[in-house]
Design a protein around this nucleic acid. Structure first.
Lengths: 141, 141
DNA sequence: TATTGTTATACTCTATAACTATA
DNA sequence: TATAGTTATAGAGTATAACAATA
């Protein structure tokens, strides 16, 4: 590890710690009995904006067969629905059910609620963090 | 989502995206055929500083039985070793093998190497990010 | 009795390969 | 032929409960 990487290295370890340690991320969906990936999938589907399964596989960076199982379980619980895409009958789009939409809102609220670290950051720190993360994930506001 | 949470919410979604999307985190251990959790476990054990299994379970925020399996697989690959703790014979401490230590160094280097987003941040941004993350994970420098 | 780690079991997550239906 | 999604299969990650060894 050369000296120039010191901050990047430390940032990396802190990011990993944030996600894996302290149950910060892992416990998020606990009260809804949702796994981390299930939470992420729900986050990806905005209400009124269904997504094709292939797109989900791409964003989740996993195999398509995997998405089948994920959607199976979420659908069985009434949180999402498969629908035929009108344009291409091979494609299935996934949309939130009303229940799924409600759960998604609660999840987002919980992720950033007062008892959680993100909410304990100052407003300036939050803005600063957003800015840096946008550069990080290459997604300009 | 009330207006006061907007930045925290956005930060949260960006953090999730950073980890789950773009294969940023998931692909880290790929060339070593290590899963994300295996990478994390290796990061936790510093060379010359073995850790008790119970401590690993605590930090990984998972059940002890899970650590047994994780260590089994890493040990089978010659990356870590179980050792009896001298003080308490119920306790087993996990230490890196020389190979494990080498792999750990390479992992950390890869996580922050030039081709990766963290290294593309400016020095000021990196320092700022570290500071915020320290507040986030409640770990003062 | 309480604690550390293991074993048995079950379910989810994940990938690869073979398959179906559509394009 | 190529693509979207499913099914079959196998291995890894996860938790709960029962257990052995030690404290």
């Amino acid at each position: 590890m050369s000296y120039v990487d010191a901050d990047a290295c430390r940032a990396w370890q802190l990011l990993v710690k944030f996600f894996f340690g302290e149950r910060e991320y892992l416990s998020l969906g606990e009260e809804f009995e949702l796994s981390p990936v299930q939470c992420h999938l729900l986050h990806l589907i905005e209400p009124e904006r269904p997504l094709p399964m292939g797109r989900l596989a791409q964003t989740l960076a996993c195999d398509a067969s995997n998405v089948t199982g994920l959607v199976d379980r979420l659908e069985a619980r009434g949180l999402v629905q498969r629908r035929q895409s009108p344009g291409d009958r091979r494609v299935k789009v996934i949309q939130l059910t009303p229940t799924g939409s409600r759960v998604r809102t609660q999840l987002l609220r919980r992720a950033t609620s007062a008892s959680r670290p993100l909410a304990r950051l100052s407003a300036a720190q939050q803005r600063s963090l957003v800015k840096i993360l946008e550069a990080l994930v290459d997604e300009p506001a």
